[in-house]
């Protein structure tokens, strides 16, 4: 299998008629971890949702390519089967659908008809991954995200990622609402997956997560664009000095483009 290759060119995205992303460019290859940082309301989560194909987000200009395939021509499920994964900030609750059944259906959709994973093998893998993520075994039969705490939902997103083994994984504020122990568990889950067969895009407010998942590239987003890119040191600098120095340096007064959290 060749290394994943994920390219975004000049991406413009609207939500309810308002332009949120105003030309985003990114290039992620297998084995790389990219972090996108930035204050609230600068378009980070919009980028994640638009890549996955969330129905509320409309791409008005630009391109997204995964391994030479045009992502914008794909439906949401086709994007996932092509290897995209988004760990969501607010995953939906689906009563009556067990976690295990959901993950197995997803995995089999990815593997295709005739190539379904044997049930026992699936459960062995699920149990193993749950153990690694310190998820109580009872969560396999719990209904999808129903009654899960914030931290449990985040770990469950990482569990799905570990089971589905995507080619490009996007983590949207996976660190929000996590205490330090949960954060370490989640980071450990990501680090275990690290290989040339997967590229990561990690969206976060804080540098905290990046102490545990060391990124290769750090991007800063403001006003719906990537305004600065650097290495892991950039994240440390932002943590120490905040965003204001960068705004001054770039001559930006109001960094936001949207009202959402």
């Amino acid at each position: 299998m060749s290394k994943p290759d994920f390219v975004i060119r000049n991406l413009h995205v609207q939500v309810e008629g308002k332009e949120i992303l105003k030309g985003v460019d990114l290039h992620i290859r297998g084995g790389e971890i990219h972090a996108i940082m930035g204050p609230n309301g600068t378009g980070k989560s919009t980028l994640a949702s638009a890549i996955m194909g969330h129905p509320h987000y409309e791409v008005t200009e630009g391109e997204i390519w995964l391994d030479g395939q045009n992502v914008l021509e794909m439906s949401v499920d086709e994007r996932a089967r092509a290897g995209l994964f988004l760990a969501m900030q607010y995953p939906a609750e689906v009563p009556g659908v067990s976690n295990a059944n959901f993950i197995r259906t997803a995995l089999n959709a990815r593997r295709g008809e005739g190539n379904e994973i044997p049930v026992l093998q699936f459960h062995r893998r699920l149990v193993q991954k749950m153990k690694e993520l310190s998820i109580d075994p009872s969560f396999a039969e719990r209904y999808l995200n129903e009654g899960f705490s914030g931290g449990e939902k985040k770990r469950n997103e990482i569990l799905q990622m570990a089971m589905l083994e995507p080619r490009i994984a996007i983590l949207d504020e996976i660190d929000s609402g996590l205490d330090i122990d949960a954060l370490k568990i989640v980071a450990n889950g990501v680090n275990q997956l690290r290989s040339d067969n997967i590229g990561f895009l990690i969206i976060t407010h804080y540098q905290r997560l990046l102490n545990y998942i060391v990124p290769d590239v750090v991007h800063v987003m403001m006003q719906g664009r990537i305004v600065k890119s650097g290495d892991a040191k950039l994240a440390e600098e932002l943590e120490a000095k905040g965003y204001d120095w960068l705004k001054q340096e770039l001559g930006i007064e109001d960094e936001t483009v949207e009202v959402e959290a």
């Binding site: 996955m52 949401v76 499920d77 996932a80 988004l86 689906v94 959901f102 993950i103 959709a109």
Partner: peptide, 14 residues
């Protein structure tokens, strides 16, 4: 529709 989106985002057809 957000439940449908969530399941689809894992590769499950609509």
């Amino acid at each position: 529709p957000l439940q449908v989106y969530y399941l689809m985002s894992r590769g499950i057809p609509q």
